[in-house]
């Protein structure tokens, strides 16, 4: 199943009892859609590419700006002005030529999303705004595609996993029911690069666990990370029977 070059590349995975050749073959077969190539998407994409996830689809409509470089560690100073997806695709292909990386360089509306989800086993929400997060949750619920949500602001990080294959699972909307609330984002509140990096790395970790079949402990949970104290809080998200997205219609 794995070529000689892959046996060497992934040798530190193959030594893991919980992963091994069987898990590596699952990673090779996996198709992951990563939305948002910013502070979360940078480490998440790099780790999933390095880990040998066979098919990555990366999505972002922004070009690289100087103010991104404080936290979006996949990019270089001489790349300002170029499309992030193009830069990321080049970076990932250089990192791991064994995988395929496809780009979506526009803002996806629902019909295109639905088509993309037919090609995805798992979605990572690495975006930076609430309306897009609500759209991603809704299409993933409708398409029954599991969703790993990361977010960060200031010194705080949030991480959740919603297994939309499971009809009893909660969804993002059960926890965050509004698209129109005043929002905190990185450009109005600031964020520490290493904090958003921790959260993006954890999205990659959970993705790898889910793909190889190690139980995710963030399913139907919200994990809150405090970058100042390094403390974690963990909350259960129950399915809201009246949820506009996943509740009984």
């Amino acid at each position: 199943m794995l070529k000689d070059s892959e046996l060497i590349r992934y040798s530190r995975h193959l030594l893991l009892d919980d992963l091994g050749a069987h898990g590596q073959a699952k990673l090779k077969k996996a198709k992951v859609l990563i939305i948002g190539m910013g502070g979360l998407g940078s480490p998440a994409s790099l780790y999933l590419a390095a880990a040998g996830v066979g098919s990555l689809t990366i999505c972002d409509f922004d070009s690289l700006e100087l103010s991104n470089l404080q936290r979006q560690i996949a990019y270089q100073s001489d790349e300002i002005g170029s499309a992030k997806v193009t830069l990321m695709q080049q970076r990932l292909k250089k990192l791991n030529p064994e995988i395929s990386v496809r780009c979506i360089a526009n803002k996806m509306e629902e019909p295109q999303f639905n088509l993309e989800l037919l090609l995805a086993d798992l979605v990572l929400d690495c975006t930076d705004n609430m309306p897009t997060r609500q759209l991603i949750n809704r299409v993933c619920f409708n398409g029954k595609v599991p969703l790993i949500v990361g977010a960060a602001i200031r010194f705080e990080g949030h991480l959740s996993f919603f297994d939309h294959k499971d009809p009893d699972a909660a969804c993002y909307h059960c926890y965050a029911p509004s698209s129109v609330d005043p929002q905190l984002n990185c450009s109005n509140s600031g964020v520490l690069g290493a904090v958003v990096g921790v959260m993006g790395s954890l999205q990659a970790l959970e993705a790898i666990k889910i793909i190889v079949g190690i139980e995710s402990t963030v399913k139907n949970k919200l994990k809150l990370f405090d970058g100042k104290t390094l403390q974690w809080q963990s909350f259960t998200i129950n399915k809201d029977p009246n949820c506009q997205v996943c509740g009984k219609k």
Partner: peptide
């Protein structure tokens, strides 16, 4: 330890010794 959906807030009665965690939803990344 359990998230209470906002639609329940008007009718959900707090109980003695409840431990509340109040925080902001964040969307950044």
């Amino acid at each position: 330890g359990v998230i209470i959906s906002r639609v329940q807030w008007p009718n959900y009665q707090l109980q003695e010794n409840d431990s509340l965690s109040l925080f902001q939803v964040i969307a950044g990344g």
